[in-house]
């Protein structure tokens, strides 16, 4: 195991949009194989923080350090698509898959390592890659439908396809924005199982409002409120915190 070196380290991060400070001096460390949840009321800055990690937003202060295979990266200085290529995968809230490609082809784009134009012109999928796709699709239960277009999928299945696309590219850090929003209880249950399996090879940061889901899978929970870090701890610790109850949980986890 790693000698307690965090995979992701957010140091004093602030994000400003014009005069509005969406995230204020947040610091936290996420360790290997953790499933970290970011919770908090709407507008707390959870998604904004996630965006900053994957390079979609830029910080106005502080920095975000990501460590993988002995290398240390300052994510602020790296372009979005390069961030993906060093092992940070991101899933947005609304399911977003390629509807003009079959499910298998969706996976194909995610599985390959070299994503330059030249490589895409020449190379065919390797046997191992095809096996990976097969394994991953069976994992989310979409293998039988691999030659269909994603338009036939339900909302939950699209989310799974997207998660499968993330998994097959073997990220070290996975960022999920409300993966179970709009899912039924059974689908949520299934997603929770998925995350627990994914956890074995990957660190996961999730933004989520579904408290039951959080309880089920969270290693640690970070509560944000008005852009500030309110508290951090296990779900039990956090749900006993009076402040958290006041601003968020007491309001029914809006």
């Amino acid at each position: 195991m790693a000698e307690a070196v965090p995979v992701l380290e957010i140091r004093d991060a602030s994000i400003t949009f014009g005069n509005f400070r969406a995230v204020k001096n947040v610091s936290t460390k996420v360790y290997e194989n953790e499933i970290r949840f970011l919770i908090g009321p709407n507008g707390a800055g959870k998604t904004t923080l996630l965006d900053a990690i994957c390079g979609k937003n830029r910080l106005s202060g502080g920095n975000i350090i990501y460590r993988s295979e002995g290398e240390e990266y300052d994510l602020q200085k790296i372009k979005e698509n390069k961030i993906v290529n060093i092992g940070v995968g991101r899933k947005f809230q609304a399911p977003s898959v390629f509807t003009g490609l079959t499910i298998f082809e969706n996976m194909e784009l995610a599985v390959v390592r070299d994503r330059s134009v030249f490589a895409s012109l020449k190379s065919k999928l390797r046997k191992q890659e095809i096996e990976d796709i097969k394994h991953q699709l069976q994992f989310v239960g979409l293998y039988e439908m691999r030659n269909e277009y994603p338009t036939v999928l339900s909302h939950g299945q699209k989310q799974w396809l997207e998660i499968a696309m993330l998994c097959v590219s073997k990220p070290k850090l996975m960022l999920l924005d409300e993966p179970v929003a709009g899912m039924g209880r059974r689908e949520t249950q299934r997603t929770a199982e998925l995350l627990k399996i994914i956890q074995n090879n990957c660190t996961i940061v999730v933004v989520e409002h579904d408290m039951q889901f959080v309880k089920e899978v969270a290693t640690l929970v970070t509560v944000l409120h008005d852009g500030e870090l309110l508290c951090e701890g296990t779900m039990d610790e956090v749900s006993g915190n009076q402040q958290v109850i006041d601003v968020y949980l007491g309001r029914g986890g809006e």
């Binding site: 290529n85 991101r90 947005f92 977003s96 390629f98 784009l109 134009v117 895409s120």
Partner: peptide, 22 residues
């Protein structure tokens, strides 16, 4: 080739393409 698939993907969901590493 895969380029064709990437092009279609860009047409459908450019952001997803970017966050798939292309």
């Amino acid at each position: 080739s895969r380029v064709g698939r990437v092009l279609i993907a860009v047409r459908d969901a450019e952001n997803r393409v970017r966050f798939t590493g292309y």
